[in-house]
Design a protein around this nucleic acid. Sequence first.
DNA 1: ACTCTGACGAACC
DNA 2: TGGTTCGCCAGAG
Length: 129
Amino acid sequence: MNSLKILKIIKYYILLPLMLTKDFFHLVYEVARHVPKGRVTSYGAIGKYLGSGKSARMVGWAMNAAHSQKKFVPAHRVVNRNGELTGKHHFGHPKLMQKLLEREGIKVKNDKIVNFKNLFWDPAEELKP
DNA sequence: ACTCTGACGAACC
DNA sequence: TGGTTCGCCAGAG
């Protein structure tokens, strides 16, 4: 049992559960709400910004519950790191996510965002304190 | 208790 | 550079 292992245990068995049970999801939604129209971000970027870079899956999981939130969450502006619309099947209709994006001026080709690199909105950069 | 499956992503062949 | 593996953790069964 080395010190690195102990750190990991603290992080993943104490800190993360606290965040998850308290307000990790709400933080995710709050970040997502800051994504401007016509821009997109990624699951990993949000996770990283919130200090748990390795739990991008949890951000995706949070998005799954985003639709039932009172306040609107622009879940369609969150895609994976390659700019692919991997979450489109969770929008009622598979084409809905693409339509929502196109309505904001984003072009989508083969479930992939055109010019993703320039449209990418990084919370770590934009939401600096 | 245990396995499996993901709206993920980095590291490694 | 493209496929595979691995770490991650919440739910479902």
